Amino acid sequence: MAAAAAAGAGPEMVRGQVFDVGPRYTNLSYIGEGAYGMVCSAYDNVNKVRVAIKKISPFEHQTYCQRTLREIKILLRFRHENIIGINDIIRAPTIEQMKDVYIVQDLMETDLYKLLKTQHLSNDHICYFLYQILRGLKYIHSANVLHRDLKPSNLLLNTTCDLKICDFGLARVADPDHDHTGFLTEYVATRWYRAPEIMLNSKGYTKSIDIWSVGCILAEMLSNRPIFPGKHYLDQLNHILGILGSPSQEDLNCIINLKARNYLLSLPHKNKVPWNRLFPNADSKALDLLDKMLTFNPHKRIEVEQALAHPYLEQYYDPSDEPIAEAPFKFDMELDDLPKEKLKELIFEETARFQPGYRS
């Protein structure tokens, strides 16, 4: 834990890192770190609560700039109880001085990944967590956004079992017609939660990839272990087919990539493993919904509104309290091709509203 900075004593240090967030945020305490930044909790002297502050230093890398800009653009436009918001952003007053960006968010005690390492969940908890994931996802999908990296560590939890989806750095506007060349190379989302079509096709992607990830998360809540822990690309596919069985001819016809289709045709026939054999203690309604989410063919996979209306979630289902976005989200430009200098300018502009004396 960093010592509390005395008023006016300059930035606090946390594990050798400068955290320049005073005077409003003090009493910093280390939480963890990701690929390009550290997260601390801090005391907000204005709202009198502890908050989470993520320090991001992305400006050396085009990919990190892209992810940072995506996350900020999306989260500043989203407003939903099951999606983490941005409360404040701290950065230098000029673009030349801006080396880091500090993002202030609600402090959540833990995440689903940490929880599943230590606790076996009751059916009631599984049901409530799944409902909140789908409630947040309904809003995301209504904005025409794909999260693309749903996994237990991106689901934040607090002691009252509130759940918030975080990390929109890989999110995209849904565009089933656009052929994202190089899709697989830039697709760094965790393999275990990846839909089979991501490994088999490169053309376009749809909201059904997020539903697949939610199915993987439900299976993990039922058993405290990942359902498809593939060691590499082909191993991942083999794990999936080992449980779902061989795809039907109709399902194979959806695979545009001939090499991928021929690979699947070359494999020995596998039978589907019954879900109640894998999860003998699970609620039968939970397994019915799991089956509809972990469907090989993305066109037959359940959609988020149908999933919310499934009998497993009937005690929570309330369409009048499951809000959607006001308007579909649009990125003005494809960020993939922009140089990091341009992305830095866009991050600077996007964060201006939090600067003292800002006038829109």
Rank of each mutant, 00 (worst) to 15 (best):
A2S: 12
G8T: 06
G10D: 09
V14Q: 08
V14K: 07
R15T: 09
V18T: 02
V18R: 05
V21Q: 09
I31Q: 02
Y43L: 10
Y43A: 04
N45A: 04
V46S: 03
R50G: 11
V51D: 15
A52Y: 02
A52N: 01
K55A: 12
K55S: 07
Y64F: 15
Q66M: 10
Q66H: 15
I72W: 02
L75Y: 00
H80I: 04
N82C: 14
N82S: 09
G85D: 13
P93E: 07
E96G: 01
M98F: 11
M98L: 14
M98N: 05
M98S: 02
Y102T: 06
D106A: 04
M108A: 09
M108R: 04
L116A: 10
S122H: 05
N123H: 09
Y128V: 08
F129K: 08
I133C: 05
K138W: 10
Y139N: 15
N144W: 08
L146N: 04
H147R: 12
L150Y: 05
L150A: 04
P152W: 10
N154G: 08
N154M: 11
N154L: 12
L156T: 03
N158V: 12
T159E: 14
D162H: 01
I165D: 08
C166R: 12
D167A: 14
F168S: 11
G169Q: 07
G169A: 10
L170I: 01
V173N: 07
P176F: 07
T181E: 11
T181R: 11
Y187G: 01
R191H: 07
A195D: 15
L200D: 12
N201W: 07
N201D: 09
Y205N: 15
S208Y: 15
S208N: 05
I209E: 12
D210C: 10
I211W: 13
V214I: 12
M221K: 14
I227R: 06
F228R: 04
F228W: 02
P229T: 15
K231I: 01
H232Y: 02
Y233E: 07
H239L: 15
L244C: 04
E250V: 10
D251H: 01
L252I: 04
I255V: 09
I255R: 10
L258K: 05
L258T: 06
L264V: 05
S266N: 10
P268E: 11
K272T: 02
W275P: 11
R277A: 08
S284I: 04
A286V: 02
L290W: 05
K292C: 09
M293W: 01
T295P: 15
T295Q: 07
F296G: 03
N297S: 12
K300T: 08
L308N: 02
H310L: 15
P311V: 05
Y312K: 09
L313W: 03
L313I: 06
S320V: 10
S320N: 05
A325I: 04
A327M: 07
E334K: 14
D336T: 10
E345G: 00
A352W: 05
R353C: 05
S360Y: 15
